[in-house]
């Protein structure tokens, strides 16, 4: 049975507050903070991108996995902000951790669920015994157009998982996918910023697919919300995961450990995977964890994990997700605009 052997997260140190962005556009910060349940978001430095964050998150995952990286048979990086349009992110990651050359590698893209796709595929390859270990990363340096609602949430971060067979830190009890063609959010080729369909991104998109996926996987394993110690949903803002959790019958206590978005923002492909790393940081052996991702376009991947005894041994050998979240430096909008290349330079 496949399981998570090691896990790790990484995020940039820079943060920008909702007030700082709202000030520039004359927007009402309190209503954004209330409406989206967002305080601040992470911002990558000019020297950080999906590749660098993937490498750092993976170093943490490998520290916890305690395996020989050359035994990794697949490296998959899921992101919608791969630094190259053509040339894989995964090759750099694989080379940096010493997994080359006997390794399969691919970059995944499915809006915000590219990371969980990578996990899903690794689990399948491990279960089918095609590979001994697989590396699945969800990472993004998300872009939101200036003044768009997305600008308040689009953040940067990465989560990395070494997937293998027992003994891991969490067994994969079940996986499930729920997908339809729903154009709620997209970015055309050569366009800098994504576009979205406003309120259409809610009910027919995020809520429908997460609800469908969560109900489907719970039916498959014959479990109810009360059977889980924790639940992690995709976090486009602070509000949606709390709301969808409540709609499904989960409590705030089950959601909160992995609920990072109020002070992290939406790390897109990193979002629910980072929620999972934060949850594993506090989980106890025997705990059941439900994770449901969401990617616009649209679909959700669901996973049911059972945390194992090994969690207590490896939890503290690498930085915890909230420990990283607490290391921060606030920046002003001008610095943010420079770091995110929103200022045209004289080329």
């Amino acid at each position: 049975m496949a399981g998570i052997i090691g896990y790790g997260a990484y995020m940039p140190r820079n943060r920008i507050k909702v007030e700082e962005i709202a000030k520039v556009w004359g927007a009402d910060a309190p209503s954004y903070k209330r409406g989206l349940m967002l305080q601040e978001k992470s911002v990558p430095s000019p020297d950080q991108d999906v590749i660098t964050m993937s490498v750092e998150a993976t170093k943490h995952a490998l520290t916890r996995a305690e395996i020989d990286p050359s035994k990794i048979g697949a490296v998959y990086v899921g992101s919608e902000s791969h630094p190259y349009a053509v040339k894989p992110s995964g090759t750099v990651l694989a080379e940096a951790i010493g997994a080359t050359p006997e390794v399969h590698c691919a970059d995944f893209e499915f809006a915000c669920k590219a990371g969980s796709e990578a996990m899903f595929v690794c689990m399948g390859l491990v279960d089918s015994e095609k590979i001994e270990y697989g590396l699945a990363v969800g990472a993004d340096t998300s872009q939101g157009a200036p003044s768009d609602a997305l600008e308040y949430s689009a953040a940067a971060g990465a989560a990395s998982f070494v997937i293998g067979r027992d003994p891991g830190v969490a067994k994969v009890i079940e996986t499930y996918s729920f997908m339809t063609d729903t154009p709620d959010f997209w970015r055309r080729s050569y366009m800098h910023y994504p576009r979205h369909a406003g309120r259409f991104t809610g009910e027919p998109a995020y809520f429908k697919h997460i609800m469908g996926c969560a109900k489907g996987i719970m039916a498959k394993v014959k479990m109810e919300p009360k059977d889980f110690a924790y639940v992690v949903f995709h976090q486009p803002n602070g509000k949606f995961p709390q709301r969808v959790g409540k709609m499904l019958g989960f409590t705030k206590e089950q959601i909160d450990p992995g609920w990072l978005s109020p002070t992290l923002g939406n790390t897109y492909s990193g979002s629910s995977p980072m929620g999972l790393t934060a949850t594993l940081d506090v989980a106890k052996p025997g705990d059941m964890v439900l994770m449901v991702s969401y990617g616009s376009g649209a679909g959700s991947d669901g996973f049911v994990f059972e945390v194992t005894d090994r969690i207590d041994e490896v939890r503290n050998v690498a930085p915890g997700t909230r420990e990283l979240l607490d290391k921060k430096t606030y920046i002003e909008y001008g610095t943010y605009a420079k770091y995110r290349r929103k200022i045209r330079m004289g080329e």
């Binding site: 020297d47 590749i51 170093k59 630094p83 190259y84």
Partner: peptide, 20 residues
Amino acid sequence: IEFRKIREEGEAGILCYGYK
């Protein structure tokens, strides 16, 4: 040491990574 992007070879060139 952390893995970072060190430089870019212009807008269309390769991205150069390394240690910081």
